[in-house]
Design a protein around this nucleic acid. Structure first.
Length: 432
RNA sequence: GUGGCCGUAGCUCAGGCGGUUAGAGCACCAGGUUGUGGCCCUGGAGGUCGGGGGUUCGAGUCCCCUCGGCCACCCCA
């Protein structure tokens, strides 16, 4: 292991320029979609008392085996967030904001898993949570936001699947119904699924194993057991989606991995992703979660969407290409560096994006750097300009060049940005 | 956690059966133009062949271990 260079921990990635420009644009797009709907940004700790996350469901894989948990130096048992919702709910319980409380977040999330395409140990989620109303129109609002975010990115090959888990009582009764049904068909299930029957009967429903699917096809259907109130709720959601012009399919076997969901659950899947991980955004209603974290009975609904997977989908559909923001002006200095140092500062303070080369390189090298920077305009200062109190402006696309008084530089650059050509900047001097 | 494939310069890749100083393209740097980019030409820098151990006269090439990547299961964003 001698001299083995450090690298990102397994299942994590660095996001560097120019790719990071895409992340910025993605988050900006998301923010504009949800803030338009009245959602405010929440920042919070990346780790919580482990109890906060255990409320996601003691039987879930995320809680049982994927949490990055540890004891800190004070003996507190804490965990890195494995998802966004529980922390938001904890914040709600702690601060008791007025309802409806509509917030959004952008956060890394951590799960100890075997990495593969679209699955990392640290990935990043954008999400919203809306607490304090059980109005199904809020479910619709949240789903529409996620849909419109994908649309804003240019994604087209996205399918929406929805289901209802009913009230907490419905969910419990249904789990019992499925369990007793499966008990009689144990022999027909795949061995792996057999073990889930007692602890986690609903998980068997979305098993991909053919033999299990044959069994679950005949299992009691959630939608047949829903209470009247839950059915009304679910129908209102469907009507709202239809009214928003959003296509969806109802899949009675859609069971999400976290136990807190009640009523509406939904998943957006990218058809452009052939990987096993094609869910790019998912969520649902969680009417019992606030209470289980010590708050007053408060309904809630929200979703999370993985940035990495969404970007993978964008790649697959060849949409949402983002150009990194280039500087506008590049200063080349042959006088020892004073001009580069002072002019870039002056330009930047005037609100103009400017860059320069360092280390007293040849003009050729500096021009090359100017070209690479993407700047439209180069400012050249050599001994000649210095002596005359002028600077040379060069349009890097047309190669037009002129000289202007140094004192006039800011005005000239502003005029150039306003659309004037370099030649028209009228310093009077001929190109040298 | 289980199984399969893979790991050579910053990037994409060559390196027949193990055999002398490990190559190319792109990118980077310098020169060709005593003060000028994008094209072209020339040159340069950059690698303990993921890491460790073993077999052998000799290993990038074979074996073992390990780390990492990809894929499937599982799970999920």
């Amino acid at each position: 292991m001698a001299n083995q260079a450090f690298q990102t921990p397994k299942g994590t990635k660095d996001v560097l320029p120019p790719e990071s420009a895409r992340w910025e644009a993605l988050i900006t797009t998301f923010a504009s979609v949800v803030e338009r709907a009245g959602y405010g940004l929440v920042h919070g700790p990346m780790f919580e008392d482990i109890g906060v996350f255990r409320r996601m469901g003691e039987g879930t894989d995320v809680v049982r085996k994927e949490m990055y948990d540890f004891h800190d130096k004070g003996g507190r048992h804490v965990a890195l967030r494995p998802e966004g919702t529980a922390s938001i709910v904890r914040a709600f319980v702690q601060h008791r904001p007025v309802v409806p409380w509509k917030v959004w977040y952008a956060t890394p999330v951590f799960r100890y898993e075997e990495p593969q395409s679209g699955r990392l140990r640290q990935h990043h989620q954008l999400g919203v949570e809306a607490l304090g109303s059980d109005d199904p129109d809020l479910d619709v609002e949240v789903i529409v936001l996620l849909h419109d975010y994908f649309a804003a990115l240019g994604l087209r090959q996205v399918d929406l699947v929805i289901n209802s888990m009913g009230t907490p009582q419905d969910r419990k009764a249904y789990a019992e119904a499925v369990r007793s049904f499966l008990r009689h068909r144990l022999g027909d299930l795949s061995p792996e699924d057999r073990e889930k029957v007692e602890a986690h009967p609903l998980r068997v429903l979305d098993s991909k194993r053919p033999e299990s699917q044959a069994v679950t096809a005949e299992a009691p259907r959630m939608l047949d057991l829903l209470s009247d109130a839950a059915i009304a709720q679910f129908e209102r959601v469907q009507a709202g989606l239809a009214s928003a012009g959003i296509e969806f399919t109802v899949d009675p076997r859609l069971v999400r991995g976290l136990d807190y969901y009640t009523h509406t659950t939904f998943e957006f899947r990218s058809q452009a992703l052939d990987a096993a991980q094609n869910t790019i955004g998912a969520g649902g209603r969680y009417d019992g979660l606030v209470e289980s974290l010590g708050g007053p009975p408060t309904p809630g609904v929200g979703f999370g969407s993985g940035i990495e997977r969404v970007l993978l989908s964008c790649d697959a559909e060849a949409v949402f290409a983002v150009q990194p923001r280039a500087v506008q002006v590049f200063v080349c200095d042959l006088t020892g560096g004073d001009a580069a140092r002072d002019l870039t500062t002056e330009l930047r303070r005037a609100g103009i994006a400017a860059d320069r080369a360092f280390g007293a390189r040849s003009l050729k090298a500096q021009m090359k750097a100017a070209d690479r920077s993407g700047a439209k305009l180069a400012v050249l200062v050599g001994p000649d300009e210095l002596a005359r109190g002028v600077v040379t402006l060069r349009d890097l696309q047309s190669s037009e060049q002129t000289t202007v008084d140094r004192a006039e530089l800011m005005v000239r650059v502003e005029r150039y940005r306003g659309g004037a050509s370099v030649a028209g900047l009228g310093g009077g001097a001929a190109p040298s």
